[in-house]
Write a protein that binds this DNA or RNA. Structure first.
Lengths: 263, 1332
DNA sequence: CCACTAAATACTGATATAAGTAATAGAAAATAT
DNA sequence: ATATTTTCTACCGACAATATCAGTATTTAGAGC
């Protein structure tokens, strides 16, 4: 997908003719950064029609792959898995992505680690992810959890053998089905992870006025003593459930700071 | 305890002064050996390498603390080091809480610092002794003094003697031996008796009497008082302004202790003056009548009435010879003084005002001192009322709820304060982790918090928290940082007022006031008191440190959060049952903005919606309301405005440098004070008729003019299903964000309007004043927020001059013109404007008669509320048989037409420009915007004719409005991008989305070009100012700044900000510097704040961008203040909003003349030349970092010299080394010693090589351009043979070759001032549209 | 009482947080090479 | 020292990101004399 005319022309006139016989590439005059261009790709022109498959398994004939330099984009992809929209509307479409090492460390972080942050809870909740390959880079290797390394057993390649790729890690994302309220889930996880090393009996209060008082009656004591960064996605789901049963929860869960920009 | 680390750090610091000494000692016999010696020294110092005790000693802040801004000014950028400031602050609070041991240990720490930091230690000691002495026995006192003296640390002064003597006197001990030095003439009695605050009036009198001292020894301000007995017949007239005699004045002491004294009985029988009494409950009652903030004010005002000394009332009536009744026993009924005043015959008015003033003196005192208690009383009162009625409305009444909070919170606060007092006695070992953390935090803030009264603390915390609702872009809540700061700022303010009050009480303690029944004596007494207060206030120099403030704020807020509860209800999702319960009113939470985490204190939706449903949005800072009497006149930088708080004349922007400058020039600012006092002395009242209309509309809750609708709650568009395309979801989010923003801003504007109305309501019928101060450029602003004449159309429409003047024929004409202006007819000749009103005179009458029913006309005005006010006034006049006899209170405005450009045009002498902004005489008013639009159109026509597609599309769409904002902001230095956005906004509706922006970009360029053409001279000046600012903020002072850290890697640090003085001698310091903030731990969260006492590198970009507009504003501010003084001298009422000047209709002509004359006077001098001279002086000896061509002659010389130095040093020479050498040269040159000067002259440095070079040639645009051109050519060549596909890539390839440039320091030399055009400012005299 | 060490605490600085990079242009500052 | 990337884009009234962690500096506790 390329929508810059000049570059498109170059690809079309010069690059594509040079490709080996029988290649499987198709060039489209579209902007890969525009969500809607994908709709046009899959609906209107029928260029790409993987067909819908149920969510009890991975999509069998559609794979999305790419090197995503921009971390925000990766996060967007993750949220597409959560929302089951965009390409994920065809089913649980596997995504095989090269992403920056630093992002990989964050996203793959396990509970109870220093790196544990909201995005890794997202990953854990909405997909099964596997570390496929990562460069032999001391800094990022150290940051990956040992458990993770032994479980996923990634290929650890010599960064020198791929000069450009040395900053990127290959991860396989396999989306999972779920039926969570995205806004509420996001709110709960966000507020709790804001102070991720504060025991729940305190940090729960960020969810609403005297929230902890309510939770205390609903959740086991040992959970109450835990700190958010040590919680698993399942525990978050549980907390969400409790939160949603709370009569006095705040009305608006997506408030933002508005900066009064004057005329 | 002060951390000993901090102390050690200070002790280790080698002050710059010491270094200078060291260098000065370098004496050498010949120039060459001098050079050699210096080289040796350089080697030794070995800049950039790690010699122990040299490089590492100083942190950045330490290096820059205590520096003169420039040698020219002799003003310290930073008065004292951070540590000293902190210690002083701590010393103050320890003394206030009588912790003498701790105070002594602070003194011990301070002493060594006093030597380094060059402050006088004895002052601090005296402070201590003065607090200690009253509580100690004479022997103890003497022992302490002797002790300190013998340690060699203390040299006592006259004040020390005064303290000792006073202590002995008070304890009836003999004190004569301390008088000996004075009696014997070895010491001056004056210096002893100057310490009136130590002695107090009574002892001062005693000491004079007992020793038969010459009265001349007593400071002049107090002599009269001391001698009351001796010469009652003294004919010396005491000039008496409205000086406040405080509540501690002997005549009224009894009233100060309580605000709940019984209501005043009805004084006289009949209520003949029906119109004079406004029953506010029955009058246009605001729905928001429950607004407790306002009740606070009203209650405060009202509660004073019972306190009213009946004598005063008698005086009232005595003077008027007629009995008036103002007060009934209905506490909600308040006198409408304005109606009384108006109803009086002219000859009685003065007397009435005199009486009113005396009356208001009392009320003002109470307003400033009692409003906090009043709030508390009000809550309690309402609570009890409801309880008595057995009402179920308890939860509905906010005040009752607040009382509940208060009752719960106050004991906790008291406990906390108690813990603070005992903080040193706690056994640390007994504490567990959390308690220990709490304890160690408490230790830091305890000395401050323990000084406060728990009741006041509680009330203030509650008020501030409610006041902050919906601020900071949070719809239901506030930012934590803001909340904690605002609470503690309010506390500090209150504490200071209290201190002033107490000092004052102390001062008059035991004073025999039997003689004060004599009015003359009373006047003397209050004069002295006022003088005394000035002295006290000037002396207060210590502030609570920022980090302490946030800690205190957060502790108190935590307590409040803990107790403040509201009743809530919600639906249980599972059972669908309605559940009731109690929940905290506040909770702490976070929100993210672009990944930045922001701490939020949310107000519970129940409370928040109660607040908005009841149209009650908060409380008013009761300390800064409009004043009932003339503000305390400005007499120094921190003396003026309110009577019981310290107000700074400049709104400092956390800049110690600004503070230092304003302090230093405090006694040269009479012209500024004069002008400012004129503004403050303008009396106002509320336009009741407009107010009635407004409140009627307000109560509907509907949108009306600039009042937004009262949203009940925010309704969001339906959430799209989560599986929608991300683009759909994003769109929805954007929509939601927009709605939330609108909701938040609507809410805050409604809030704001509510404040305005409520304050106006409280001041209905009152005579009041707005105390003013200045922003750092010298522009004046009313100190009281929300409701003032500088606010929106709404507030302006509500304000009338208290004083009325007969309108006369001319005045009537001006009133009409004013009305036309308000309708937006302000570009037509005056006659046409007048005609516009005459043509619509029926509409005027109808609108005035019933504004609500006939709203279609006046609401269409540009400024509808002011138009309505004017309409009413005009209609009143027309009702009279002779309209010219109408007494008008309506302010009439004269606005500068693009005032910034007027000043620019005058400075640049642009003839055409001057004409366009009405400096030059003309038959009809010129409109710059129209003119620029015309110019632009012409240009576009031409370009279109040449086949320019953009121009063709645009040429018929250039309206005045399209260019207006850009022309206006051009003065402020708007950039291309900014202007493009502005124009884009205007073109959006005309062109399609995708065309619009491209066209805007094109149009912006044309507009800029046209502006430049029209105001050529002005733009040259603008550029010149910007260049100067840039050069200055990129220059270094070699004698102090930055050479230390100029090692091989480091860049020099630029510390010089742009500083200038206005024609009124007000020093302006641009505060733009790097912002360095730190996270401070508090109870709730960390808070990210900067320490206002630290100085950092200048922000050159901002300095440059802001200097031209700031300079112009400093001029228009001067013009305004001069005009104010001038108008006041002529007896005109005067008010101003920057470039809009207000007076009575009948005086417009005279005012116009005044402001023309002052403008001419201002520009009589070549202000730019004056500025250049000032800069040249101020920044003399500064160096600038420039780049010169490698190959120039000097360049070669410098290279050679560097090579030489490098070989001599045995290491690469650095810029720092060069600065060092230059500095030595300067030291020699300025030494005053002929020998040394000769040596200096023979010395050659890299800088001196450049001294006589024309830097312009070296760095000129031409030289650089020619280099760039040749490079560009090469680039083009290389591009020629690229094919079209690779073009993009090729373009990005870096240019390999670049001009060889040499970085060197050269003397700072500002460019010559641009030539001036031919316009003569004296022509202005005949321009009638200058202001209109 | 002192000098000493180890443990505890305090202070500092770095980093992540959220989550489309992009409507445009051009200089200056900051950072990377 | 030079090249690339990032930042910023109209003045004033009117300031505000925070939690956590690692590493270092400083203080304190404690044992021993």
């Amino acid at each position: 997908m390329e929508d810059r005319k000049a570059y498109y022309n170059y690809l079309h006139d010069i690059y594509f003719p040079q490709l080996p016989e029988g290649h499987n590439f198709d060039l489209q005059l579209k902007n890969p950064y525009t969500w809607t261009d994908y709709i046009h790709l899959t609906d209107g022109t029928r260029v790409l029609d993987p067909g819908y498959q149920t969510r009890d398994k991975l999509h069998s004939n559609f794979l999305f792959t790419g090197l995503i330099h921009n971390e925000a984009l990766v996060m967007q992809f993750l949220s597409c898995m959560a929302n089951q929209n965009w390409l994920q509307r065809f089913g649980n479409v596997k995504m095989l992505l090269w992403i920056p090492n630093s992002s990989a460390v964050k996203i793959m972080a396990r509970p109870d680690t220093r790196e544990r942050a909201k995005c890794s809870v997202v990953r854990e909740t909405f997909c099964d992810a596997k570390l496929i390959a990562t460069p032999d880079d001391e800094k990022s290797l150290k940051s990956f959890n040992n458990n993770l390394l032994s479980n996923d057993d990634p290929i650890i390649f010599n960064p020198k053998s791929f000069s450009k790729a040395s900053k990127y890690t290959l991860i396989e994302f396999n989306p999972k089905d779920h039926d969570l309220d995205a806004f509420a889930w996001d709110y709960v996880v966000k507020q709790l992870m804001a102070s991720r090393n504060t025991p729940l009996d305190k940090s729960l209060n960020h969810l609403g006025p005297a929230a902890a008082d309510f939770f205390v009656t609903k959740i086991p004591l040992n959970l109450l003593g835990k700190v958010p960064k040590n919680l698993t996605s399942e525990e978050f789901k549980f907390l969400l459930e409790v939160f949603q049963s709370w009569p006095f929860k705040p009305d608006s869960l997506l408030e933002t700071v508005s900066f009064g920009k004057e005329m | 305890m002060l951390s000993t680390v901090a102390r050690k750090r200070i002790l280790n610091r080698r002050s710059p002064a010491v270094l200078v000494q060291a260098f000065k000692r370098t004496n050498v016999s010949s120039a060459s050996s001098l050079q050699n010696n210096l080289i040796e020294e350089l080697k030794h110092i070995s800049l950039g390498s790690k010699t122990p005790g040299r490089i590492n000693v100083k942190s950045d802040e330490e290096v820059h603390a205590n520096k003169w801004s420039t040698p020219y000014d002799g003003v310290f950028r930073q008065s004292h080091s951070k540590e000293v400031m902190r210690l002083w602050s701590l010393l103050d609070v320890c003394l206030d809480s009588s912790q003498f041991e701790r105070a002594e240990s602070i003194l011990t720490t301070l002493h060594p610092l006093s030597i380094e930091d060059n402050f006088s230690f004895v002052d601090d000691f005296n402070k201590y002794l003065n607090k200690f002495a009253p509580l100690a026995s004479p022997t103890e006192i003497e022992a302490v003094v002797a002790n300190w003296r013998s340690s060699g640390k203390l040299q006592t002064n006259a004040r020390t003697d005064a303290i000792i003597i006073n202590a002995l006197m008070t304890k009836n001990n003999p004190y004569e031996k301390y008088l000996l030095p004075y009696l014997s003439g070895r010491a001056d009695f004056r210096s002893l008796l100057r310490n009136v605050d130590v002695f107090g009036l009574q002892n001062l009198k005693l000491i004079v009497e007992q020793n038969n001292l010459d009265i001349k020894f007593v400071p002049a301000a107090y002599r009269d008082l001391i001698t009351i007995d001796n010469n009652v017949e003294d004919t010396n007239e005491v000039t008496h302004e409205t000086n406040i005699s405080s509540s501690s004045s002997p005549t009224t002491t009894s009233t100060t202790t309580t605000t709940t004294s019984p209501l005043l009985e009805p004084l006289m029988g009949s209520a003949d003056y029906e119109p004079a009494v406004l029953n506010k409950q029955n009058a246009e009652e605001l729905k928001s009548v429950d607004t407790f903030g306002m009740k606070v004010i009203r209650h405060t005002l009202l509660s004073l009435e019972p306190d009213l000394n009946s004598k005063l009332l008698e005086k009232f009536n005595e003077k008027l010879e007629e009995k008036l009744e103002f007060f009934t026993n209905d506490s909600e009924t308040q006198a409408n003084f304005f109606e009384v005043y108006k109803s009086l015959p002219l000859d009685k008015r003065d007397l009435f005002e005199e009486a009113l003033n005396e009356f208001n003196v009392e009320r003002q005192t109470a307003l400033e001192n009692k409003s906090i208690e009043a709030a508390q009383e009000k809550w309690k009162h309402e609570y009890e009322e409801i309880k008595k009625r057995g009402d179920l409305g308890m939860s509905k009444s906010l005040n009752a709820r607040l009382w509940g909070w208060f009752e719960q919170m106050m004991p906790l606060v008291r406990d906390e304060i108690e813990r603070c007092k005992n903080v040193d006695d706690i056994q640390i070992k007994t504490l567990k982790n959390e308690a220990f953390a709490q304890h160690s935090e408490r230790k830091k803030y305890a000395p401050y918090l323990r000084l406060l009264d728990p009741k006041k603390v509680t009330v203030i915390t509650i008020l501030e928290m409610l006041k902050n609702n919906s601020t900071g872009g949070i719809s239901e809540g506030m930012r934590t940082a803001r909340a904690v700061l605002s609470v503690s700022k309010a506390l500090e303010l209150e504490f200071r007022s209290e201190q002033i009050l107490n000092t004052e009480k102390n001062f008059v303690k035991n004073f025999d006031n039997s003689k004060l029944s004599n009015p003359k004596n009373l006047k003397k007494y209050s004069m002295s008191l006022s003088n005394f207060k000035n002295d006290v206030i000037s002396d207060m120099k210590v502030y609570w440190p920022q980090d302490i403030k946030v800690k205190i704020g957060s502790v108190l807020i935590s307590i409040l959060m803990h107790v403040a509860k509201v009743e809530v209800s919600g639906v249980d999702p599972s059972t669908k049952q309605l559940v009731r319960g109690e929940a905290p009113a506040f909770y702490h939470s976070f929100q993210y903005h672009n990944g930045a985490k922001i701490g939020i204190l949310k107000i519970h939706k129940v409370l928040s919606s109660q607040l908005s449903a009841d149209k009650l949005v908060g409380a008013v800072q009761p300390q800064s309301l409009p004043m009932l009497i003339q503000p305390r006149p400005w007499t120094s930088w921190n003396n003026g405005a309110y009577y019981y708080s310290q107000n700074q004349i400049i709104r400092l922007r956390d800049s110690p440098e600004q503070l230092a400058y304003i302090k230093a020039s405090s006694d040269k600012l009479d012209k500024v004070y004069d002008g400012l006092n004129v503004l403050g002395n303008t009396a106002w009242t509320v336009n009741e008729r407009v107010f009635k209309v407004m409140s009627k509309i307000w109560n509907t809750g509907d949108e009306f003019l600039d009042i937004p609708k009262a949203h009940e709650s925010l309704e969001l568009p339906e959430v799209p299903p989560r599986s929608s395309d991300p683009s759909v979801l994003n769109e929805w989010k954007i929509k939601v964000k927009a709605l939330q923003d609108k909701y938040a801003t609507d809410r805050s504007t409604r809030c704001d309007a509510n404040y305005k109305l409520e304050i106006a309501r409280a001041f209905l019928g009152e005579k009041f004043y707005f105390p003013h101060n200045l922003d750092f450029r010298g522009r004046a602003y009313p100190i009281s927020p929300n409701f003032n004449h500088m606010g929106s159309d709404l507030s302006r429409g509500l304000l009338l001059f208290w004083k009325g003047k007969e309108i006369g024929e001319e005045g009537l004409r001006w009133l009409k013109i004013h009305l036309a202006n308000l309708f937006g007819i302000d570009k037509a000749p005056l006659n046409e404007r007048e005609a516009f009103v005459n043509d619509n005179i029926e509409l005027v009458k109808r609108a005035a008669e019933d504004p609500m029913a006939n709203q279609e006309w006046w609401t269409k005005a540009d400024k509808p509320w002011q138009a309505l006010a004017t309409i009413i006034d005009l209609a009143d006049a027309l009702k009279l048989p002779d309209p010219t006899k109408h007494i008008s209170h309506q302010p009439v405005h004269q606005d500068g037409t693009c005032n910034g450009l007027q000043h620019y045009a005058a400075l640049g002498g642009d003839v055409e420009g001057a004409t366009q902004v009405n400096l030059a005489p003309s038959d009809k008013p010129q409109d710059v915007y129209t003119h620029v639009a015309k110019l632009v159109r012409a240009k576009l026509e031409e370009a279109a004719a040449n086949g320019d597609e953009n121009a063709r599309m645009l040429k018929d769409n250039i309206k005045r409005k399209v260019v207006k904002q850009t022309v206006m902001t051009n003065v402020y230095g708007v950039t291309q991008v900014g202007a493009t956005n502005q124009i884009h906004k205007q073109l959006q509706n005309v062109f399609s989305e995708d065309q619009s922006y491209k066209l805007s970009v094109y149009l912006t360029k044309v507009v800029f070009a046209s502006m430049r053409e029209l105001f050529e001279g002005a733009h040259l000046i603008q550029d010149w100012l910007a260049i100067c600012a840039k050069m200055i903020s990129k220059s270094v002072r070699i004698d102090i700044d930055s050479y230390e850290e100029m090692g091989p890697k480091k860049k020099p640090s630029f510390m010089a900000s742009v500083i200038w003085t206005t024609p009124l001698d007000l020093p302006i310091v641009q505060p733009y510097r790097a912002i360095v903030k730190k996270q401070i731990q508090t109870n709730l969260q960390t808070v990210f704040i900067q320490d206002p006492y630290e100085l950092h590198q200048v922000d050159a970009r901002k300095q440059m961008a802001a200097f031209p507009p700031n300079f112009i504003h400093s001029l228009d501010a001067s013009h305004m203040l001069l005009s104010a003084s001038s108008c006041s001298k002529k007896g005109l009422e005067f008010a101003a909003v920057h470039d809009s000047y207000w007076t009575h209709a009948c005086d417009v002509g005279e005012m116009s003349e005044s402001l023309r004359e002052t403008f001419i006077e201002l520009h009589q001098v070549d202000l730019i030349a004056r500025l250049k001279d000032e800069f040249d002086e101020r920044y003399k000896g500064f160096l600038q970092l420039i780049e010169i061509p490698y190959k120039s002659e000097v360049g070669k010389k410098i290279l050679a010299m560097r090579k030489e130095l490098t070989s001599q040093l045995g290491r690469p020479v650095t810029l720092g080394d060069e600065v060092y050498l230059e500095r030595q040269r300067q030291l020699l040159l300025n030494s005053g010693d002929e020998n040394k000067i000769a040596k200096g002259e023979s010395m050659v440095t890299t800088v001196s090589l450049l001294e006589n070079e024309d830097l312009k040639d070296l760095t000129s645009a031409q030289a650089m351009k020619s280099m760039k051109n040749s490079l560009a050519e090469e680039l083009e060549e290389s591009l020629e043979n690229t094919n079209e596909y690779e073009e993009e890539e090729e373009l990005k390839k870096p240019v390999k070759k670049s001009a060889q440039k040499l970085k060197v320091f050269a003397p700072l030399r500002l460019p010559d001032i641009p030539p001036k055009g031919d316009f003569d400012v004296n022509d202005l005299r005949n321009s009638k549209y200058f202001f209109s």
